[in-house]
Design a protein around this nucleic acid. Structure first.
Length: 484
RNA sequence: GGCGAAGUGGCCGAGUGGUUAGGCAGAGGUCUGCAAAACCUUGUACAGCGGUUCGAAUCCGCUCUUCGCCUCCA
């Protein structure tokens, strides 16, 4: 069995083999940190988190780099517009670096809630200015870039195959679409900035051979990807909206500088929409994760995201989230039930499910199908446990191992207990268990005496504080549903 | 205008040339003091119109609609 990945470059699924056997180099475009993360960020980073996890499950050593863009780029490639981080700094009456730091921390906080594992290296653009200057120098020397008035531009004409990723290869057609009358030193309007001279009052600026200024907005990914992963990497991921111009520019400047292929597999994840319209910071319709987490278990959000394919648009609605919450709860319930189950004699083989799960994941990370397999497994497990013979110890352990590997390690959706199990809370949890035993015993006594008013009262009052009691054949069991 | 993606049952959402995706919601049932959970049963879906084919929702063409990119954006 082998892994197939949809490569945006070529638009087909291709068999994945890393450049160096056993080791995968992977770079994913990180966030620009000038505001709190929203649901769109969640979709992107959860999706790539699962990609990394699955590659690791498949036995690869993955070197995963995800940058933090802490330089505010201009809102426009035509030398106009404002620097977003600087703008936010003005708004918050502080300086750009504080803005960047604040929102970087906020970003990681949200990603932690979503169970997104940290990248191996998370380089900041501002910490790699020399590397970026270096790359620009290489391009100037080789004739792919030119300097005018302290600004340096990449000459698109000098690079054959510009636009091959997005399919925008006809530069003349592109030019005609670009509005006229821009004030710029560019030779061609499709040329893009590698280095910009800082205006008066621009706060984030560095010395360079050309001017005191700041790097162009495509540059950091190329420079940092090459520094940490080499000149040719296996996988580069990012949002679809970055195909053009960002990724096409990255390819051009990188390959022009090295003469080698920049990226072997390009992966692009699709957008989150609300009522069919793209969610975006600029559109002011984005759903802030911190707000969302107030009402919804972050892992429900993760599950909701993984229930659709990463290359599909995901339409947000409250009813869709609720449906996901119920679905995930069903899987969690099965996981819990399995854990509390006494040994029986029935034999249960989860191998067919494991095989189908692997097939789904190997088919371009098809998490919706993988999750469907878990639902079918859940049904089969429950049916087996409902049966008088139950499940033998060996069978149960086999199923638990698979569920931990698939649901927890790979998809990251069945790890609630771990999240709740903060060290400092351990003692509390233990005490709660003891207290619950007492309550359940009292309730059992009431039931025995047919005092259903009292037994129901105990159950209802506990439910009010988030503890659910269920009567089963083997007596009452309880679970804490309040912990998120 | 150029480049690209997509239209699936009440909702979300996979997939595919002929055989059940899955989840949520709904209906009926089993179990239960009741509840919850679980299980069983239940849904003649694939935008429209042509064409290819023994057979298409799946391939081709046209039409309609939606969305993304062509300004920063996950």
């Amino acid at each position: 069995m082998s892994l197939f990945i949809y490569n945006s470059l070529g638009r087909t699924k291709e068999k994945f083999e890393p450049l160096h056997p056993g080791i995968v180099s992977m770079y994913v475009c990180g966030p620009t940190v000038y505001g709190h993360a929203h649901l769109g960020h969640a979709k992107s980073y959860v999706s790539f988190d699962v990609v990394v996890r699955w590659l690791r499950q498949s036995g690869y050593r993955v070197k995963y780099v995800q940058n933090i863009t802490d330089v505010g780029h201009l809102t426009d490639d035509a030398d106009e517009g404002e620097d977003k981080i600087m703008k936010q700094a003005h708004l918050e009456k502080t300086d750009p670096m504080e803005i960047a730091q604040f929102y970087t921390r906020s970003f990681y906080e949200d990603m932690d809630w979503l169970g997104v594992m940290r990248a191996n290296i998370a380089p900041a653009a501002t910490a790699h200015i020399p590397e970026q200057i270096d790359l620009v120098e290489r391009l100037v020397k080789s004739g792919h870039a030119y300097e005018v008035n302290g600004n340096v531009y990449f000459s698109v004409k000098s690079f054959d195959g510009y636009g091959k990723l997005s399919g925008r290869t006809d530069q003349d057609a592109l030019q005609s679409g670009i509005r006229v009358g821009i004030r710029s030193d560019k030779r061609e309007s499709s040329d893009f900035a590698l280095w910009k001279k800082a205006d008066e009052g621009h706060l984030m600026k560095w010395n360079s051979p050309w001017s005191i200024g700041y790097p162009g907005w495509h540059l950091e990914c190329s420079a940092m990807s090459m520094k940490y992963l080499g000149e040719t990497i296996d996988i580069h991921g990012g949002g679809m909206e970055n195909k053009f111009p960002h990724h096409d520019c990255e390819i051009a400047q990188s390959e022009a500088a090295t003469g080698k292929p920049y990226v072997r597999f390009w992966m692009h994840n699709n957008m989150v929409t609300i009522n069919g319209i793209k969610m975006g910071k600029s559109l002011k319709n984005s759903i802030n994760l911190k707000d969302l987490f107030r009402e919804t278990d972050p892992l429900v959000i993760r599950f909701f995201i993984l229930q659709s394919h990463y290359r599909s648009q995901l339409d947000y609605s409250e009813t869709a989230i609720k449906a996901s919450a119920s679905g995930l709860e069903k899987l969690r319930e099965t996981r819990r039930r399995l854990r509390e189950q006494k040994d029986g004699s029935g034999v249960f083989d989860c191998e067919p499910f494991a095989r189908r799960f692997t097939e789904a994941m190997d088919d371009d990370f098809n998490t919706p199908v993988a999750i469907a397999v878990l639902f079918e497994l859940s049904k089969a497990i429950n049916a087996a446990l409902d049966h008088n013979e139950g499940m033998s110890r060996q069978s149960r352990e086999g199923v638990e191992t698979f569920l931990d590997q698939a649901g927890r390690e790979t998809l990251g959706i069945l790890n609630q207990e771990e999240q709740n199990g903060n060290r400092e809370k351990k003692d509390c949890v233990k005490k709660l268990g003891e207290v619950m035993l007492i309550l359940l015993e009292l309730r059992a006594e009431a039931k025995k005496n047919k005092d259903f008013i009292l037994s129901d009262k105990i159950r209802n009052l506990l439910l009010d504080v988030g503890i659910e009691i269920k009567d089963t054949k083997e007596g009452a069991i309880w679970s804490d549903k309040s912990g998120g």
